[in-house]
Design a protein around this nucleic acid. Structure first.
Lengths: 286, 286
DNA sequence: GATGATTACGGACGCCGTAAGCATA
DNA sequence: TATGCTTACGGCGTCCGTAATCATC
């Protein structure tokens, strides 16, 4: 199973086209056909239906593995290159929307300690950020998410270590006048039937939340596809639905049980990050 | 990065010898040398010190990725082959030492429903079992471990889905006369300085426990390398140390906080397991 | 008939083995 | 000096592109 063939297979299924994959990968149509044929011969199974191009059952199985394998190969390459290249000239920092505040403070502190430090910052979604750190596009990443206390975030399996982590309280963001205002705390179970805003680019996706809270439901009243906090807060204020957010970016009612926290992790490709780059007090690097 | 080269690199580092790796892999010494040279050329970094053969810093990094990548490639192959081959003639079931009881009951129930069913059972350690299911050596596996309530077990990343899971109470196994006997519950923090038996083949390894309980310490008074429960219970009864075990295999004092449970998962390669193969009431297959 | 996957074939490159070279214990 | 890694070189297999073939919309 040549990784090149695996990549070809992934692109072919994504584009549902041999010729399209050929264009994207810089091969001829014929080469693509031969790649797929080689995979099918090696595995002894048909992987694709042709016309329309669509994975068979076996192909669907292979596809579930292809992405993680190719990702990890890229991560390995990047990891080796990093130690060979030594410390980068400009520190490329990534952050998720809800970790930008913390990331900004960390960068400010770092530049205080190292005034000559050249820094570039980028904001993107959580999984994309973890992948970018793994593949060497970024040097460090500050990612956030919702998890049970003490649990690590569920990130794509790239082998990138968590250098540092901290956890904060979660609140249910509410419009100014809302019956739940003033309650000392609410439990998620009481809110499964509430109107939620599904904002996977900013906070937990509702389907993930259902898994974490071990509850069915959480029907989205509205979907928000932005990467910014402001738009989401505006929708909440306008009474369009509820959202689960860390206490320091939104006012709301604290979350009671099941115990979930807002967790922020500092991912660092290559070596442990220097001591002047920190996000909080709990260092966890071994 | 040809996976064959990666495999060669892994074997070379394990044996600390090019010629040894050549013997094990059925290549000539020269081919091994060329594999390593090809990797080093592609990655632009030296991966091994020669004489003695030892990974460089870059090589150590690559090594961390090589195992997971090769494992996942094997899992992909096995996964595709499984759907191509159809349901197996004899169902190969794996179990960890502490899940044998549950596995046996599941097998008994299955044979009640399918009297003609041919079954083979194997017992081995947790990670090895997960790998065996992933690579198709086993069809299903019943694995156990210690986790926070609701958390999945931390198994090697193979993509094998958890078909079903259940959780049970943990107790601290004690000798018959012990000051803690009769206490309604104990907390792990009170026991960091106790004499523990480290039995990684049977129950949680003490270093894993330290991570789960978020506590340092847990110095082993004794290490037990068996895969059987009987020997461990005998050592506990003889007062050689404490052990954390599920309540249904040992008497002891229930564990209070931090909340940890004994979790059992049914792993199933290929399709979801048939309905007549169950380990408990909580089915989780999507 | 046009679009797009497959097959046939030739050239180039890559991988492996043999054998000679070379460094280190 | 012996063990063991490296380099030189030749054969063979593999991979890719061109071009002809075949299938489907």
């Amino acid at each position: 199973m040549d990784p090149r063939f695996l990549r070809t297979f992934a692109v072919v299924t994504r584009l549902a086209s041999f010729s399209g994959a050929a264009r994207e990968l810089g091969y001829t149509q014929s080469a693509i056909s031969q790649h797929i044929a080689a995979l099918e011969a090696e595995l002894g199974a048909s992987l694709l239906h042709r016309r329309p191009v669509e994975p068979t059952e076996a192909g669907a199985r292979l596809l579930e593995h292809a992405g993680p394998i190719l990702l990890r190969l890229d991560a390995a390459r990047a990891d080796v290159r990093r130690v060979a290249a030594g410390p980068p000239g400009t520190l490329r920092v990534g952050a998720t929307p809800l970790s930008t505040g913390l990331a900004a403070r960390a960068v400010a502190a770092a530049r205080g300690a190292r005034p000559a430090l050249d820094v570039a910052v980028r904001v993107c979604a959580r999984d994309a950020l973890a992948v970018a750190v793994a593949t060497g596009e970024l040097d460090v990443g500050v990612v956030d998410g919702v998890a049970a206390p003490g649990d690590p975030l569920r990130l794509p399996d790239t082998g990138v270590p968590v250098a540092e982590s901290r956890e904060e309280e979660l609140v249910v963001a509410l419009p100014r006048r809302h019956p739940l205002r003033g309650r000392p705390a609410v439990s998620l179970e009481d809110l499964v039937d509430a109107r939620w805003i599904d904002a996977p680019g900013v906070t937990v996706a509702l389907d993930e939340l259902a898994v974490l809270a071990r509850a069915e439901g959480f029907r989205p009243a509205l979907r928000y596809d932005g990467l910014d906090l402001g738009g989401l807060l505006a929708l909440v204020a306008a009474g369009q639905g509820l959202a689960l957010l860390p206490a320091d970016v939104a006012s709301g009612v604290p979350l009671a049980a099941p115990a979930l926290v807002h967790r922020i992790e500092l991912l660092s490709g290559g070596d442990p990050p220097p001591p002047w780059l920190r996000i909080g007090e709990h260092r966890a690097w071994g």
